[in-house]
């Protein structure tokens, strides 16, 4: 095998390497493009979307449970979420946080829709936190997530 031929083959090999890297970069750009398209679509206010039943809601039991984990005095209190429940210091709320001075009168609402649970802050002073992050508008809550209203923390158990 002459050195010249091996040199040519070496460059072919290196060219293949760069072809591979180029292909990876192309896939990455495609991915990024797909992300960009996906985000604005989801953010668009859909007004005339066709009515369709969510697929996954059919089999799912439309209820879930919220358990208070803090403060200690109320730890373990459990609330069944079937349709919608409001949270706040006001006596009319589904979950009354009478002792929590950091909670607003009508602090937030939790509701079920399409088999999923959502929490929506209702303009509270100190905000609603999902897993430590302050939410704006409504956010989906998953099993194991912790929602904080004022100083009260509750966990979605099911």
């Amino acid at each position: 095998m002459t050195d010249e031929l091996l040199t040519v083959l070496k460059f072919c090999f290196l060219a293949l390497l760069y072809l591979f890297l180029f292909r990876v970069v192309r896939v990455v750009t495609l991915e990024l493009k797909a992300d960009k398209i996906a985000v604005p679509l989801a953010a668009l206010p859909v007004t005339e979307a066709p009515v369709s039943q969510p697929k996954r809601s059919r089999g799912a039991r439309d209820e879930s449970t919220l358990v208070i984990v803090a403060p200690e005095s109320r730890e373990g209190e459990t609330f069944l979420l079937d349709q919608e429940i409001t949270v706040g210091r006001a006596p009319g709320c589904g979950i009354v946080l009478a002792d929590d001075t950091f909670a607003s009168q009508v602090h937030a609402r939790i509701y079920r829709q399409g088999g999923k649970t959502y929490v929506e802050d209702l303009g509270s002073t100190n905000g609603t936190l999902l897993n430590g992050e302050r939410i704006s508008g409504y956010v989906r809550v998953r099993r194991g997530d912790r929602v904080q209203f004022g100083q009260t923390i509750a966990e979605l158990t099911r």
Binding site: L41, A42, V46, A49, P54, K116
Partner: peptide
Amino acid sequence: TEAEDDAATEEARRAIESA
């Protein structure tokens, strides 16, 4: 998967709301 679910659910919710 979560994003996909969210998107699907979101779509459904909006559909219901608009209905």
